[in-house]
Design a protein around this nucleic acid. Structure first.
Lengths: 200, 200
DNA sequence: GGGGATCCTGAACGGGCGTTCAGGTTGCGG
DNA sequence: CCGCAACCTGAACGCCCGTTCAGGATCCCC
């Protein structure tokens, strides 16, 4: 039974990987289920054995892969001292994650703002985890005295997330190839300036 | 003849305003041309007298209204001294602009990242103007000594734009009503920290 | 108030695509 | 090698929607 489960899981993943590739290249709305099936080397109908709706493909890939990254992040960050070091590590890990899987990054960056109710609801848990992670780092940094005590945590989270997000989005949409992780120093320098405690 | 042009322009604008309203509430992809027509109080076919394709509605509204804002911005900013004051004014004007027309802001924030080739190409001029405006402010700030001379202007532009953009997007997607312009002080405080010249 | 120009209408067309399902294929235990 | 179960297939269905256009309404000038 567990053997069969594994096979099921593998096939599911195959379909998701195909969907990531297809959505990354044409965008969700301009990709058909048939396109995904062809990329996966199976018939269109087969996809409906594994996923109930086209939207599920998008939702599941984000919840599974980006969600996993967010959960791993929490563990890895605990190994750094709170404050600036932890903030830097968070940025580093995000850049590395997206650089490691550019197609997934493309899909996530472009479709995270989808208005479609099913998709919005489906993405919510992962987005909340992502946001929660950033807010935690900010709060810890305020407590340990590294960060500006006047910070509005929610606003600062949006600020930091947005800045990061845009850098990743440009990278993902750019024709040029360059290292995302290579931007870490400059990026951290600006982020640090934005949140650190100010001299009187 | 100019009288007729005016009438034409007015009708066109009526359609665009209707499209903004409809796209803002359901998103572009889930809105039909018939929805826009109904909102505008005309027949679906009439829209095709004024716009060649559905995509044109999206492209034209952004180029017309957001584009105008970007051009106005350049003029208004000249009245502030370069550097921090001008940066602050730029943020203020952006917040005010989006707050003034929330529906347009919704459409713009959500669809600016569209992958669809027609839309991407159509948005490009306005986005370039937007980006160019930010880069100019940053460069001037570096020249006058307010900003960190180590800044990578393009990266800093993405950083600042992204931070702003995310704050506006949250506002636009939020159920809660709160003043966007009211965030100016906190937002500027962070932005300032991110780009200002560092003490040795 | 006639007639031509302009503008608008909305039914109809055509294509695309998400989804289903009857039937075929595969694999496995006996 | 049989037969059953699990799995896969892809043609077909139905719906939606962008776009067109022939005909009708409106306006305006003489």
């Amino acid at each position: 039974m567990t053997e069969k489960d594994k096979k099921f899981r593998d096939k599911e993943e195959g379909i998701l990987r195909a969907a990531i590739k297809v959505f990354a290249s044409q965008g969700y709305h301009r990709s058909s289920v048939a396109d995904v099936a062809k990329e996966a080397g199976i018939a269109a109908g087969t996809i409906y054995i594994y996923f109930a709706r086209k939207e599920e493909l998008l939702i599941e890939m984000v919840n599974r892969y980006v969600g996993k990254h967010c959960r791993d992040l929490a563990v890895e960050l605990a190994q750094q001292p709170a404050g600036m070091a932890r903030l830097r590590e968070m940025i580093r890990l995000h850049l590395e994650f997206f650089e490691r899987d550019r197609d997934l990054a493309r899909v996530f960056q472009i479709h995270a703002r989808e208005l479609h109710p099913l998709i919005r609801t489906g993405f919510r848990p992962t987005l909340l985890e992502y946001f929660g992670g950033i807010e935690r780092v900010l709060r810890e940094g305020m407590e340990c005295g590294d960060f500006d005590p006047q910070l509005d945590v929610r606003l600062a989270r949006r600020f930091v997330f947005g800045a990061l997000d845009e850098v990743v989005t440009s990278w993902v949409l750019s024709e040029k190839v360059y290292s995302l992780a290579g931007l870490l120093d400059s990026l951290f320098r600006m982020t640090e300036g934005a949140v650190r405690v100010r001299p009187a």
